[in-house]
Computed example of a mutant assay.
Amino acid sequence: MTAIVPPTTLTEATVVAPTPAPRRALATLTPREQLRAGRLPRRLVQLVVGLWIYGASMAMVIRGALGLDPWDVFHAGVMAHVGLSFGEVVIVVGFLVLLLWIPLRQMPGLGTLANVVLIGVATDATLAMLAAPEGLAARGALLVGGIVLNGLAGALYIGAQLGPGPRDGLMTGLARRTGRSIRLVRTSLEVTVLVAGFLLGGQVGLGTVLYAVGIGPLVQLFLPWTIVELETE
């Protein structure tokens, strides 16, 4: 017979409650409100660190050579036809995507503009220092590490609350203007750039699938710990 231990005999060593994630929420702010919401130095540092890690993690996935995320499939496809580096293509495409914000009446924040430039610079800098590994296991480890770091980096720059990236802003703007769900708009955009990138010669593979499946849960996992609480009026 299984003995039933009375609740009064349980010790702290017996029952250890997991530490809950902090309950923080993203605010809906205009670009001016983002700058006036307080804790700006802290948020700027987090933004820059997040964007740099984002670009570095993209380079890790590229060096893994097992398939890229949909937007990077497109960037790689474009790079194959122009005389620009990968990071330079990321920057140019970012600015072109920002032009699509105009009819959507989207206003970029400081983080949006930093996103366009810093990620491309960080990607090229990391590619210059990181050699492609030999062997499937090493490439797989680089791919998985890059995806996990990418999820953390995305949570960091989103949590800084200084404006969405150009591609995220395009997604939310289209969803608002068309009345369609975020899920449908995001899926449509990513399928479109994936197909276009593949036709241009971009690399599709296992990494493409892993990124598509894993990036959402990873950002959701890290985001509660990275949102900076604002001092809104």
Rank of each mutant, 00 (worst) to 15 (best):
P103H: 09
S188F: 10
I53H: 07
L152G: 00
V193N: 06
V148L: 09
T2P: 13
A132T: 15
G173Y: 08
V185C: 02
P103F: 12
V61K: 11
Q34Y: 09
G38E: 09
G120R: 07
S57P: 06
G207H: 11
F74P: 06
M1K: 09
L10W: 15
I53E: 04
G145R: 02
M58F: 08
I215M: 07
R167S: 03
G154K: 01
P31F: 09
D124P: 08
V49Q: 07
P41Y: 10
P103E: 03
A128H: 14
A3H: 14
G87A: 05
A212N: 05
E134Q: 15
P217F: 12
S57A: 15
D72Y: 10
E233T: 14
A21Q: 10
T226E: 08
P7Y: 13
G111L: 00
Y211N: 14
P20G: 13
R183Y: 09
T172P: 07
L152V: 03
Q161A: 04
W52A: 14
G55M: 01
Y157I: 03
L136V: 14
R139T: 04
L223S: 03
T28I: 12
A153L: 04
L118S: 04
R180Q: 12
A122F: 03
V213T: 00
M1V: 11
N150V: 05
L136D: 13
T172M: 10
R24L: 12
I158S: 03
E12S: 14
V82M: 08
V116N: 05
L162Q: 05
A175N: 04
T178E: 05
T30W: 14
L218E: 03
E88M: 13
D69N: 11
A131H: 13
L221R: 11
Q34W: 04
A65T: 12
A138Y: 05
G169P: 02
L210S: 00
D69C: 05
G146T: 01
I227H: 01
R139V: 01
P6I: 07
G140N: 12
W71V: 11
